[in-house]
Design a protein around this nucleic acid. Sequence first.
RNA 1: GGCGCAUUCGUCUAGUGGCCUAGGACACUGCCCUCUCAAGGCAGAGGCAGGGGUUCGACUCCCCUAUGCGCUACCA
Length: 493
Amino acid sequence: MSDQARPVRVRFAPSPTGFLHVGGARTALFNWLFARNQGGAFILRIEDTDLMRSTEESTGRILSSLRWLGLDWDEGPGVGGDFEPYFQTQRLPFYRAAMEQLLGRGHAYYCYCTQEELQARRKAALAQRRAPGYDRRCRYLTNDERMALAEEDRTPAVRFAMPPEGHTVVHDLIRGDVRFANDQLDDLVIMKADGTPTYNFAVVVDDMLMKISHVIRGDEHLANTPRQIRIYEALEYPLPEFAHVSMILGEDGSKLSKRHGATSLAEYWESGYLPEAMFNFLALLGWAYDDKTEIMTREEIIQRFRLDKVNPSPAVFSRQKLDWMNGVYIRGLDQDDLAMRLLPHLLQADLKADEGMTRRLVPLVQERIKVLRDAVELVDFFFTDKLHYQAEGLIGKKMDAADSLQALRRVVDVLEGVPSFDEEALERPLRELTEQLGLKAGQLFGIIRVAITGKQVAPPLFGTLSILGRERTLARLRKAEAALLKLVNDDRV
RNA sequence: GGCGCAUUCGUCUAGUGGCCUAGGACACUGCCCUCUCAAGGCAGAGGCAGGGGUUCGACUCCCCUAUGCGCUACCA
């Protein structure tokens, strides 16, 4: 069914009723990748016909998340295009025209049933174990009956007249042919009584008018596709290609929701995931290049992406794997780049960092953070002189307080006399001291670590000392000395 | 209820009838490296949902069952 070389035009069409969900982001990404791979156009259209739930703020959030991920659109909000407008609420005349066309050709009809009646009948049908679909009673109304209903002041909706028999086959690029019996398709409302179109109608009209060649969207729309196909045909317009990508699930296999943790792209952005890592990770959710390649640049992914290689089964969003991948990308960043990305996170955590200081910290954290925000607790001790730790933590492994105190005093002596606080200048004498004291490196360095950072787990020692500087280091060591002395004395009492 | 989609290690996946004694990655376990934590190296454990066919031969094709999910709205 491939049309003879229609230019590739795909679209992502979110409804602005919240933020951009990772599932939506993946759908957008696949559309974008396909467009870029094919040299086609990626169009963004805002489906805001749900007046009650749509907000402008939400539109803004979605756009900024897309930009963050690096998915630029060729047509749509902010950039315009040949098929404006790109907001459905501004396209009402188009839907009305299409509706008139269908009405005129007998492919659609007015339905005077009220929502209450519909609901009651659906309930009754379900109770009797009958199919709950619309019973088509308005479809075969005589003119007189129609007039009578109209007099009652009922504002009609418009329904699409489905062919009552036969079947409709959806040719799906990911799933193959999917066959639906037409008698399963009921006469869906295409235009609500308030004059706004329903989703299934608006998408068809928009995709048609915007000359969309490939409809790549979530799996949940597959069952709607035969209805849409019938509308295309009634409108006498060639079908686009369809590709339905599977859903993204939470760790427990159920539909991804808030209780699974972060679901919006913005949350990942805020906690310090790199857009390039998220891009790579999302691309691999339901698609793979081969049996081993995972880390790929944006360009490599564009070049390698194939729609027919997309996996039809749902995928669980694995935070752990994302974390790993983000770590890989962080480690791959050059130091200045990482510093610039880190700085806002440090500032946000109220650490009084500046560019220069952040640059110096980078080598200390680059290998040990998975998300940018992790750096905060790794380096916070540089930004305060009030350390909170238990004095017991100053006692070295397999040592007692008195031994530790003695060792600490020797450390102070050594560091007072050391000519420079460069890493290299520090390491030699401290290692020699361990030997003199008959201690293992871990014992002595552990004591120093706690004394200057207040933590058992911290970045490498010499780099830390060097950045902290002689004065602050010695001050912290002396405080630790005092704390240990107190411990020793308390023991004696 | 009806219709539809899906089902390979815990997770993401490779696999399109013999290359599979099923490959890679995350996570996990052990060892190595090591000033803690990481990072890194090596090794290990772990899977074709179940049952029938088709075939000389099925992870791969067909059917059934099970399970999960979606649609069945004047939501999108």
